Amino acid sequence: MNHLYAIAVGSNRPHGRHGRPPGVVAAAIAELDAKFGLFDASPIMLNRATGGAGRDFANAVTLVESDLEPPQMLAVLQAIERQFGRRSGRRWGARVLDLDIAAWSGGRFASRRLTIPHARLAGRAFVLVPLTAVAPGWRLVGPLSARHLAARLAHRRPCR
């Protein structure tokens, strides 16, 4: 059975081969396309860093189709991150590539290592805004879609 996944893609460190963060995000989108067959991808957006990340981010959201269940999808995404040079480090630190499962067609999923959708997704414009470009009607929190959650955030604070 195939599932549709919304994968959040982010970078705030340059890569030796792919260049600055927007180039890293574009290369990661190409890698996801090669591994899964890309269904759609949002435009790449530039966003201010949050927490202690320091550097501004390039972000996008892709939609990919796969027969993998969420734990296996997470393992593949982490392998791609390592392939791009991501190393374990401090939380909220600079990273070459960050791939997160924002949502999947199976609804909610929770385990010790993974929660879908992410518990703080409703407050993350850097994921919601690109998600609205590719799947505005995707229901994330009860009856609330990506579009609804992004609009709520836009009323609270302006997005860049």
Rank of each mutant, 00 (worst) to 15 (best):
A30E: 15
L32E: 07
L32N: 06
D33E: 15
A34G: 14
F36V: 04
F36S: 02
L38I: 03
D40Y: 14
D40M: 15
D40C: 13
A41E: 00
I44C: 01
N47A: 03
N47R: 09
R48M: 08
R48Y: 11
R48V: 12
A49G: 15
G51N: 04
G51T: 03
A53P: 05
R55I: 05
R55F: 12
R55T: 09
D56G: 14
D56V: 12
D56C: 06
A58H: 04
A58E: 07
A58Q: 08
N59L: 06
V61Q: 07
T62H: 11
V64K: 00
V64H: 03
D67W: 10
L68N: 01
E69T: 13
P70V: 11
P70Q: 15
Q72Y: 12
Q72F: 11
M73G: 07
M73L: 12
M73Y: 08
L77Q: 01
L77W: 01
L77C: 06
Q78I: 01
Q78D: 03
A79S: 05
I80W: 00
I80R: 01
R82K: 15
F84E: 00
F84V: 02
R87Y: 01
S88R: 15
G89D: 11
R90N: 12
R90S: 08
R91K: 12
G93C: 05
A94Q: 10
A94F: 04
A94N: 03
R95A: 03
V96R: 08
L97A: 04
L97M: 09
D98N: 01
L99A: 06
D100V: 06
I101C: 04
A102M: 02
A102Q: 02
A103E: 14
G106P: 02
G107R: 04
G107E: 01
R108G: 11
A110N: 05
S111Y: 06
R112K: 08
R112S: 08
R113E: 15
R113C: 06
L114I: 03
T115I: 09
I116A: 05
P117W: 14
A119Q: 12
R120P: 00
L121T: 01
L121V: 01
L121Y: 02
A122V: 10
G123A: 14
G123W: 12
G123H: 10
R124V: 07
R124Q: 11
R124Y: 12
F126T: 08
V127A: 04
L128I: 13
L128C: 05
L128T: 05
L128D: 13
L128M: 11
V129D: 11
L131H: 08
L131W: 10
T132E: 07
A133H: 08
A133Q: 10
A135E: 00
G137V: 04
W138G: 01
W138Y: 03
R139I: 05
R139V: 02
V141D: 14
G142V: 02
S145L: 10
S145E: 11
A146P: 11
R147T: 14
H148L: 06
H148D: 15
L149S: 04
A151E: 09
R152L: 14
L153Y: 14
L153D: 07
L153C: 09
L153W: 14
A154L: 13
A154T: 13
H155T: 09
R156D: 01
R156C: 08
R156F: 13
R157W: 13
R157D: 08
R157K: 15
P158V: 13
P158T: 10
